[in-house]
Design a binder for these strands. Structure first.
Length: 276
DNA sequence: CAAATATCCTGATAGC
DNA sequence: TGCTATCAGGATATTT
């Protein structure tokens, strides 16, 4: 499931398409283009030059000419693949962008939760109005101890639920939410507002360290293989997970058994000894 | 305000 | 072997 590190990996790998033109686009999926008619989407991307690549949270933003922005969210099972024309298309390929380099940028998405649309940069952050509700991106934006303290202050919500709230901080999903809590030594169920200064400091530090390490490892590819990079290759950060997916296994730090609980309708994992 | 629940969906897997 | 039930979860809307 692509979260910030996976989307950032794809963003970086897409750099070679900058300067290319979208000669045409084929839309075969019924659900992948959202928020606008397919005809409008096709009209607005066709013939456009790809001039920039940005990311905000889990959204990939492809800047086109004239301040137009192609917005892509992979959600659960979405994949972007950059492949030569002669390479057979994967099952569940819903969109194909035919680039001027003879390569195809393909949007593959078995569970069809992902979405693409074209909009225009509107707010001061350059975000289209459709995603202007997003909070700070912890890698692109400047997440300081002051701004983080304000997010946490007086909040009665569980820490992990807060970290997963895209309106507050964006880009963190179920995997990295668990890993950040683990590194910080704080249980995901802890009421955010009850964190001590020290704990807040550790959480803030862990957000940065975990995300940066995961980007360096080109993200996490789970056994279901749902995330693959632009070339279809897996990431390697899954080998560094301390708690996510390790329910019932021993904590590598202390030997205690990793616990699994349901929090906000999602699975949460933590070490009952290392995390308080 | 917070948490729980439902929704969208397919594929992997566990159980019979 | 083969079927069926279950689970996975990002974002959002609705209910408690």
């Amino acid at each position: 499931m692509p979260e910030l590190p996976e989307v950032e990996t794809i963003r970086r790998e897409l750099e070679p398409v900058l300067g290319l033109t979208i000669d045409s686009v084929s839309v075969t999926g019924r659900r992948s283009v959202r928020r606008q008619p397919v005809e409008e989407f096709v009209a607005r991307v066709t013939g456009q030059c790809l001039v920039g690549l940005r990311r905000w949270g889990k959204f990939l933003l492809v800047d086109l000419e004239d301040a137009e922005v192609l917005v892509i969210h992979l959600r659960m099972s979405g994949q972007l693949l950059l492949e030569a024309r002669e390479v057979p298309r994967a099952r569940h390929t819903h969109l194909v962008f035919f680039l001027s380099s003879e390569m195809e940028l393909r949007f593959v998405d078995p569970r069809t939760f992902g979405e693409c649309f074209v909009s225009e940069a509107s707010d001061e952050r350059g975000l289209p109005v459709e995603i202007a509700h997003l909070g700070i991106d912890p890698v692109v934006g400047e997440l300081t101890s002051d701004s983080f303290d304000k997010m946490v202050k007086d909040r009665r919500i569980a820490l992990k639920s807060l970290l997963l709230d895209q309106r507050v901080i964006c880009g963190i999903g179920n995997i990295y939410g668990d890993e950040i809590c683990a590194r910080a030594g704080v249980r995901p169920t802890r009421v955010a507002g009850s964190l001590t200064r020290k704990e807040r400091g550790r959480v803030l530090d862990s957000i940065g360290v975990i995300l940066e390490d995961a980007i360096e490892q080109r993200g996490s590819t789970l056994p279901d293989g749902s995330y693959r990079n632009l070339s279809g290759l897996p990431g390697s950060y899954q080998d560094h997970h301390e708690v996510y997916g390790r329910k019932g296994l021993v904590c590598r730090r202390c030997g205690a058994t990793i616990k699994g609980v349901v929090l906000g309708g999602r699975s949460a994992h933590f070490c009952p000894r290392c995390q308080r």
